[in-house]
Amino acid sequence: MEKNLDKLRIGGKSFNSRLMLGTGKYKTTDDAIKSIESSDCEIVTVAIRRLPTDIKNDNISFLKKLNWEKLWLLPNTAGSQTAEEAIRMAFLGHELACQIGQEDNFFVKLEVISDPKYLLPDPIGTLKAAEFLIKKGFTVLPYINADPMLALHLEDLGCATVMPLGSPIGSGQGLNNLANLQIIIENATVPVIVDAGIGAPSEATHAMELGASGVLLNTAVAQSKNPAQMALAMKLGVQAGRMAFLAGRMEKKYYANASSPLEQISRI
């Protein structure tokens, strides 16, 4: 399928790529930049808490090396333990977007995580922060547990997407919440982005085959032996899964069904 016929639409913007990449945990800045380039992703998420607030600072040279005419910044509120902290990070994220020339960028990946051991998102804090930020004009992409009812509540509030985890962040365990992910995808009228837990391209493909609108990942690429090559593999996995979903899987059958019908053989 041609790219321009199957765009990902979030908050009034359209994207060709359905793969989003994080920018943490890379061994070197060069690894991060090469991975972003080889992935052909268009949305890059950056943890605001880990960055200086002024892009002119030499310590933030990584952001200066990215081509922001082709990329869209997705600031994230990682490290926020309360709704109030997340809201403050969202406003700082918009300031950063303005500094790279994206004054109209009010996107925010909303993370409220008060659990230090398993890093599971706080549903109450997420709802509270999402409601406030939406009223302030932000395009909110909330990171959540694979909870179908929470996903519906966030969609009702006006979130631009829902981003359920496949398994705990950074774990590489894959899609451990298949039943709930399928329910969320079936019920959602906004894009569903599977976020966290994916460790291999086959898992990214599986998420897309389920009907997810996209995949966001970081550790699987950043901690691989060859990040740029893994980023390319993830790109191809996402594309394959999307094409398979659109093509429609064959129906499963209980019995074997010969691929060469007998009536054709009899005529030979």
Rank of each mutant, 00 (worst) to 15 (best):
T82C: 11
I87M: 03
M89C: 02
M89Y: 09
M89D: 10
A90H: 02
E95P: 05
E95I: 07
L96Y: 02
C98D: 13
C98A: 11
I100M: 02
I100D: 06
I100W: 03
G101A: 14
D104R: 09
D104E: 11
N105L: 07
F106K: 10
F106E: 01
V108K: 02
V108C: 03
V108S: 02
K109H: 01
L110Y: 05
V112M: 10
I113G: 02
S114P: 12
D115V: 14
P116R: 09
K117W: 08
Y118G: 03
L120E: 14
L120V: 15
P121G: 08
P121W: 07
P123A: 06
P123F: 11
I124F: 14
L127F: 07
K128L: 15
A130P: 08
F132N: 06
F132M: 09
L133G: 07
L133K: 11
L133N: 06
T139I: 09
V140Q: 05
L141S: 07
I144W: 02
I144D: 05
N145M: 12
N145P: 07
N145K: 14
M149R: 09
L150Y: 06
A151G: 03
L152R: 11
H153G: 01
L154K: 03
L154R: 12
L154Q: 10
C159M: 05
C159T: 13
V162N: 02
M163Q: 03
M163L: 07
G166H: 02
P168V: 04
P168R: 06
I169Y: 10
G170L: 06
L178Y: 00
L181Q: 01
L181W: 05
I183G: 00
I185L: 04
E186W: 10
